Computed example of a mutant assay.
Amino acid sequence: MTTQEERRQQIIDRYHFRHATKAFDPEKKIPKEDVDVIFEVARLSPSSFGMEPWQFVVVENEKVKQLIKDHSWGAKAKVSDASHFVLILARTHEDVRFDSTYLKEHYLHHLHYPRDVVEHMKDVIENFQKHDFALFDDMRYLDDWSMKQTYIPLANMMSVAAELGIDSCPIEGFNRETFDQLLRDVGVYGESFTLSVMVAFGYRKEAPKPKQRRDLNDVVTWV
């Protein structure tokens, strides 16, 4: 039986295993059962006010892969060689603002909140967006806030992938405005979404260098 101390060490070992994989083995594919776990973890991830302002697009179409390869400096080899290549989309400000149709339908019909609770949440979110975080000073702030939420499932997906012995690489190497136009033009998504980040999953082609980070005492402060 695994002791608690052994379990702690296993967790640390998996985070040493996880790294931003630069080259994937194109011959190795992730079993469907493991892929399902990765996406279920994404689905179960938390978001501010339970908004779930995201969509996960698995790219399989070769024309879309070529488009990504041609226009993303960060994804050129990864989109072709990784077992699974994922676009993580964030809902734009029209959908995440406190009075949006999306939020009302989300809370009523998907989370099944009572109407009085939804009305109360609308007031709470309005105060938060307008005053606590001043997100209404510029609609770009609301877009950025929505995109921040997507990094929670991104981190969870990469963490559970490492638990399963699967490699990953998050990718921000693209022009967001350009990609939104290109991917909307080919029907990958509509105006309600913007591309937040990409992530590739698969198996490393070669062993990485040992992980290097700042000392724990440099990044953790107790007050």
Rank of each mutant, 00 (worst) to 15 (best):
A75S: 11
A75Y: 13
K76L: 08
K76I: 13
A77M: 13
K78G: 14
V79M: 05
S80A: 14
A82K: 11
A82D: 07
A82Y: 15
S83C: 11
H84R: 05
H84C: 04
V86K: 06
V86W: 06
L89N: 05
T92N: 14
H93W: 07
H93R: 10
H93P: 01
H93N: 10
H93M: 00
E94Q: 11
D95A: 06
V96D: 00
R97Y: 04
F98I: 14
S100N: 11
T101W: 13
T101Y: 11
Y102R: 08
L103H: 06
K104M: 11
E105W: 08
H106F: 09
H109V: 02
H109Q: 13
L111S: 10
Y113D: 02
Y113H: 04
P114C: 03
D116V: 12
V117Y: 08
V118S: 07
V118P: 02
V118R: 03
E119N: 08
E119F: 00
E119A: 09
H120M: 05
M121D: 06
K122M: 05
D123R: 11
E126H: 15
N127I: 07
N127H: 10
F128L: 04
F128M: 08
Q129A: 06
K130E: 09
H131C: 02
F133L: 15
A134T: 07
A134C: 02
F136C: 02
F136P: 01
D137W: 00
D137E: 15
M139Y: 09
M139W: 04
R140Y: 05
Y141S: 13
L142R: 10
D143L: 01
D143P: 01
S146K: 09
S146G: 04
S146H: 13
K148N: 09
K148P: 01
Q149E: 02
Y151N: 14
Y151P: 15
Y151W: 12
I152G: 03
L154F: 05
N156W: 06
M157A: 03
M157E: 05
M158T: 13
S159F: 07
V160D: 00
V160P: 00
A162Y: 05
L164M: 14
L164C: 01
L164K: 14
I166R: 07
D167A: 06
S168T: 13
S168R: 10
S168W: 00
S168M: 04
C169D: 05
P170T: 14
P170D: 00
I171V: 12
I171S: 03
E172M: 05
F174W: 03
N175V: 13
R176T: 15
R176H: 08
T178F: 01
T178M: 11
F179P: 00
Q181V: 14
L183S: 04
R184E: 10
R184H: 07
G187K: 05
V188C: 12
V188T: 13
G190N: 13
G190M: 06
E191N: 06
E191P: 01
S192V: 12
S192G: 07
L195V: 14
S196G: 10
